[in-house]
């Protein structure tokens, strides 16, 4: 299949950047989206040009490294998958595809489609962990946890920190990520003692990184490759309000 690609090219963080057009010819339908870019890059390299830079690692939909906003939607319109799991059979011959980075002030562009998602790491460092050593993985059921809590925590733990929620949000808000990471620990007995401290610290760091504010439009949950529900945002709001009150009076 033959495609026209409209790709964001930006030499470095301070470059203004621009959309450039590439013709992707003879792309097999069985190729993945990233393999299609590999084919296009091979052509660019053979012509002596600078290949299109993009992030990727496992290419199995589990690491959260690949990004790309495809036709305006992070990880494409396909539900519940990352960019590396998008296949070219989902496109039609002759299609024009817009490929842009995950756009947010808190995710500065490193080069072309590569963005620095270090802000997420700093949020985790601020409180997305348990502050004491809890040892290695415990034996099953040695710490009794109600099934509902375990399921809820596990659903949140599925977050791979890819940043699609930020990229999709009209306000570049990181609430789905922070909500998932906080809920993952807050629901478990190991995480509960530091719940208030964690929520306050993570929200503070999130704001300091320059993410926007959630306006409850739920674009984030629509694009999340792990289909994390925006209910975690409601929980974060509730936990934050309770933590502020307890912090002020205790």
């Amino acid at each position: 299949m033959n495609l026209t690609l409209k790709v964001w090219r930006q030499a470095h963080e301070n470059d203004t950047g621009r959309i450039e057009t590439y013709e992707a010819k003879d792309i097999p339908e069985s190729a993945s989206f990233l393999e299609m870019l590999d084919i296009v890059n091979t052509g660019i390299i053979n012509d002596g040009g600078e290949p299109i830079h993009f992030d990727h690692d496992c290419r199995e939909g589990i690491c959260g490294m690949c990004s790309l906003t495809i036709n305006g939607v992070p990880h494409s319109r396909e539900q519940g998958i990352t960019t590396c799991q998008v296949h070219m059979r989902k496109f039609r011959d002759g299609d024009t595809i817009w490929i842009e980075p995950f756009r947010a002030r808190a995710f500065p562009i490193v080069k072309d489609l590569v963005v620095d998602r270090g802000a997420f790491d700093r949020i985790i460092a601020s409180g997305g962990h348990i502050g004491v050593r809890t040892g290695s993985a415990p034996d099953a059921n040695s710490v009794p946890i109600p099934k509902d809590d375990a399921d809820d925590s596990f659903d949140s733990a599925a977050c791979i920190g890819c940043g699609a929620c930020v990229a999709a949000c009209k306000n570049a808000s990181a609430m789905l990520f922070v909500g998932a990471k906080a809920n993952h620990l807050n629901r478990l007995p190991q995480g509960k003692p530091e719940k208030d401290k964690r929520v306050l610290a993570m929200v503070h760091q999130m704001d300091a990184e320059g993410f926007g504010n959630c306006t409850n439009q739920y674009e984030c949950e629509a694009v999340c490759p792990k289909e994390i529900s925006a209910d975690v945002i409601a929980k974060l709001n509730r936990d934050y309000a309770a933590a502020v009150v307890r912090d002020a009076v205790e």
Binding site: K6, W8, G17, I19, T69, N71, G72, V73, R77, W98, E100, R103, A104, R105, A106, A168, K170, N171, A172, S173, G210, F211, G212, N213, T215, N216, Q217, Y218, E219, A222, V223
Partner: peptide, 29 residues
């Protein structure tokens, strides 16, 4: 104040912008 922060947080717009499920009413608040 929130809207101003939101505009700053998305400092570069998408060349091809798309909306998956946000209703129009939510986008013109």
């Amino acid at each position: 104040a929130l809207t101003r922060q939101n505009k700053e947080a998305r400092n570069t717009r998408y060349a091809h912008e798309e909306t998956v499920q946000a209703p129009r009413s939510s986008r013109i608040m």
